[in-house]
Computed example of a mutant assay.
Amino acid sequence: MKAVAVEQRAASSDHLLTADQLNANLGYLRMKRLIDIIGSLLGLILLLPIFLIVAILIKIEDPKGPVFFKQVRVGKDETEFQMYKFRSMVTDAEERLKDLLTLNEVSGAMFKIKNDPRITKIGKFIRKTSIDELPQLWNVLKGDMSLVGPRPPLEREVEEYSSYDKQRLLVTPGCTGLWQVTARNNVGFKEMVELDIQYIRKRTIYFDIKIVLKTVVVLFGSKAAF
């Protein structure tokens, strides 16, 4: 897969996507936003019991820490916004990150390691099942994110992006996407970018719905999640 990704990157480097090109399909964009509003509202209402249970478990394990974790992410057109998650790490996780950077197990402008010592006990479960991502339905309702799209990166990650990589910032980021339902952490940064660009070029309402349905399987756990 890596060889194919490199070939695709080389072949398409002279044909970068543009914002005008992607914003031209108004019908798709309006329908996508309508689905995002309806889907996020229904999700927030139906999943409220899970929100309450997870909040209680987080507080039981770490009474002094907050239930939710918010972090500045980079969205469409490199606009920054606050992304929400259930807190799955110790409260000083960001401060401890600098001591773990050399242990990064994912290539490129990302950071992930298995058995991250900053993750709490309840955090391991909600990350494994992707439950920690559910508060992002609020970001979807606000319009910061979509149900489907490239994952929003951190500012420090974007600083390492090439013009080719920045194509994934031309669309609204998503809660899930092609990368999450096909490869997740089994590929490096370059392969993730290729999957995101593949999605951007192919995206349709049908394709979005297909990815959402596949994501349901991921919510029950994945060996690739960490």
Rank of each mutant, 00 (worst) to 15 (best):
M1V: 12
V4F: 06
E7K: 14
S12W: 13
S13E: 10
S13K: 07
S13P: 06
L17N: 06
L22P: 10
A24N: 11
L26Q: 14
L29G: 08
M31C: 11
L34A: 15
I35K: 06
G43P: 00
L48G: 07
L48P: 04
L48F: 14
L48I: 13
L57H: 11
I58W: 01
E61R: 04
K64Y: 12
K64R: 15
P66E: 06
P66W: 02
F69G: 08
E78L: 07
T79C: 14
E80C: 12
Q82F: 10
Y84E: 03
K85E: 02
R87M: 08
S88K: 07
T91E: 12
D92Q: 12
A93C: 02
R96Q: 15
D99F: 10
D99S: 14
L101W: 14
L103R: 15
S107T: 14
G108P: 07
G108Q: 05
A109P: 10
F111V: 09
F111M: 08
I113S: 03
T120S: 02
I122E: 03
S130G: 02
G143Q: 09
M145L: 05
S146C: 02
L147I: 01
V148T: 04
G149E: 00
G149T: 05
L154I: 02
L154D: 01
L154F: 01
V158D: 09
Y161M: 06
D165Q: 05
T172H: 09
G174T: 03
L178N: 12
L178A: 08
N185G: 05
N186Y: 07
N186W: 09
F189K: 00
M192V: 05
E194A: 06
Q198M: 10
I200Q: 05
K202L: 02
R203W: 06
T204L: 04
K210W: 10
V212Y: 01
K214A: 04
V216S: 01
V217P: 01
K223P: 00
A225N: 15
